[in-house]
Simulated scan of single mutants.
Amino acid sequence: MIPALDYTPDADIPHDASFWMPSEEDIPDDEGIGYFRNVWMLLNEPEDVTRHVIETESDLITLVDHLTVSVEEYEALATIIDKGYSGKHPPGRLGHIIRTEAPELLEIAADDELPLYDLELGVAGLSYALSTVGAVPVASCRGHEGGWSDQPVVFVALDEQRARWLQPLLRESGCGFHISRNREEFLVIDSPSIQHTNALAQEIVREFDGHTDLFDRWLDLSVIDARYN
């Protein structure tokens, strides 16, 4: 049971998009950009790592869809995947189903390496995919009722060249662009469900396929790495 919002995303690039991208000097040492909390930088992640995250995420989405029958169960199981098992069994039917059909999820503690590297189900793969093509994901959320986003979103620093390359992939996967008030320097990729965002991540790596010459180089990571040498 994967929740899906009933709306049609707009894949057109907003007319007031700034296409802002950070320079090496804008990249902090130990946090993210854009004044979001509990974020960190994903910069030019290797394609093999990204493919692993996307495939793992796809398998977990299929598992969650198979095991849950309500939004409450979906949220409980997705939280275990996102944050690790807290030691408290989910109540009722879901707890029994996890113990019998996916007990490996109960072996992942919060202080272990999490399956999606501390990102949330449905937006981890897209965040890594954007990083691999040279964009800079800055914040993400799979969508929580009453949370800071009620739908899957990834905020991303994106130049015009990559935005136009991404646009048909968004349209094909059922995702869209928008700009968030007070975060106008970033483009936001939104979707009705985490299945759509994972589909977009798959489309990105399929289309990119290691062709690093597709885009202009933006960040020189050697400048950033030199800070630690």
Rank of each mutant, 00 (worst) to 15 (best):
Q202V: 12
H178N: 14
G122Q: 02
F208M: 07
R217C: 12
D6K: 12
I13D: 03
Y128V: 03
G84M: 05
D6L: 12
T62S: 13
Y228K: 11
F215V: 02
D150H: 14
G134E: 01
W218D: 15
R142S: 06
V71N: 13
V138M: 11
A135R: 00
I27G: 06
E107R: 12
E145S: 13
W165H: 00
A157R: 06
S131R: 03
S222C: 09
E55Q: 14
Y85S: 07
G210L: 11
R183G: 00
E184P: 07
N38C: 05
S149Y: 07
Y7T: 12
D112G: 11
P152F: 04
I98C: 05
A78I: 02
F19V: 11
G34W: 03
A157C: 15
F186Y: 10
D159H: 09
R51M: 06
I98F: 05
L67S: 06
A78F: 02
W218C: 15
C141T: 08
T79N: 12
P3V: 00
D209Y: 14
K83I: 04
Q151W: 02
T50D: 00
L166N: 09
K88T: 15
D190H: 12
H15L: 13
E203W: 02
D10I: 08
S173T: 08
V133L: 11
R206Q: 15
H144D: 09
L187R: 03
R99Q: 15
V136D: 01
E55H: 11
H178V: 00
S23H: 11
W148F: 13
L94D: 09
E45V: 13
G174L: 00
S149N: 05
D29P: 08
E104T: 09
Y35C: 14
R93S: 10
L105W: 00
Q161T: 10
R37Q: 15
A76T: 14
D216W: 11
M21I: 14
R217T: 15
D48H: 15
R162I: 01
R142N: 06
P103S: 10
W148H: 14
E55G: 08
E172H: 06
R171A: 14
C141V: 04
W218F: 13
D220A: 10
S140P: 10
D150T: 13
S173M: 08
H211I: 06
M41G: 00
G210P: 10
V136C: 07
I13H: 02
L63Q: 13
Q151D: 09
T8W: 06
L170P: 00
L187H: 05
P192L: 05
Q151Y: 07
E55M: 09
G87T: 03
P115F: 03
M41D: 02
M41A: 03
E75K: 10
D48N: 15
I97Q: 10
D209V: 10
N182E: 13
E73H: 04
